[in-house]
Simulated scan of single mutants.
Amino acid sequence: MARAATTTDAFNAVAEPRRRQILDVLADGERSVNDLVMLLGLAQPLVSKHLRVLREVGLVEVRDEGRQRMYRLNGHSLKPIYDWVKNYEQSWSQRFERLDVVLEELKEREDGDDGGNE
């Protein structure tokens, strides 16, 4: 089965770590390409390439401000990813609750062992 192009699917687009870094920075607010280059320590052509992919799948929006292009996160396009991850939230919560019970039992055993050695 052929893999979906990164330019048509948000899941594939965010699979690339540098694109996730860009989204993380843009989550704090609008940034120019130069700001992203400086904050991420990546070459400008690489940042521009990743921004193009993110823009094509709708994860970021761009507007012109004078001679600069300003990029911002489009949270609505992240909703399919959120909806997919949300399906696992109940399972994760149950597992964490079970882990809390086990850790509490271990702590009680440890405290009980210490009490007998005094």
Rank of each mutant, 00 (worst) to 15 (best):
M1S: 07
A2K: 08
R3Q: 13
R3F: 12
A4F: 03
A4P: 06
A4L: 12
A5R: 09
T6N: 14
T7Q: 03
T8D: 07
D9A: 09
A10I: 03
F11Q: 03
F11Y: 04
N12L: 03
V14Y: 00
A15P: 01
A15V: 02
A15H: 08
E16F: 01
P17C: 05
P17L: 03
R18T: 11
R18V: 06
R20Y: 01
Q21W: 14
I22R: 12
I22Y: 13
I22T: 09
V25P: 00
L26P: 07
A27P: 03
R31N: 11
R31W: 02
R31V: 01
R31M: 08
S32F: 07
V33Y: 03
N34H: 13
N34K: 15
D35L: 04
L36D: 04
M38S: 12
L42M: 15
L42A: 10
Q44G: 06
P45G: 06
L46H: 05
S48N: 13
L54G: 00
L54H: 01
R55F: 07
R55W: 04
V57A: 05
G58V: 06
L59F: 08
V60T: 15
R63I: 08
E65M: 04
E65H: 05
G66S: 07
R67W: 03
R67C: 00
R67A: 10
Q68R: 13
M70I: 15
Y71H: 15
R72Y: 02
L73N: 00
G75M: 05
G75D: 04
G75N: 08
H76R: 12
S77P: 01
L78H: 02
P80V: 03
I81F: 07
Y82Q: 09
D83K: 05
W84H: 14
W84S: 11
V85G: 02
V85Q: 02
K86P: 00
N87Y: 06
N87P: 03
E89H: 14
E89L: 13
Q90E: 15
Q90I: 02
S91F: 07
S93R: 10
S93I: 00
Q94A: 11
F96T: 06
F96V: 08
F96D: 09
E97Q: 14
R98Y: 09
R98S: 12
L99Q: 10
D100E: 15
D100V: 07
V101S: 00
L103C: 13
L103M: 15
E105V: 11
E105T: 11
E105Y: 06
L106K: 09
K107W: 13
R109N: 12
E110M: 12
G112L: 07
G112F: 09
D113T: 07
D114W: 10
D114Y: 09
G115T: 06
G115E: 15
G116N: 08
G116R: 13
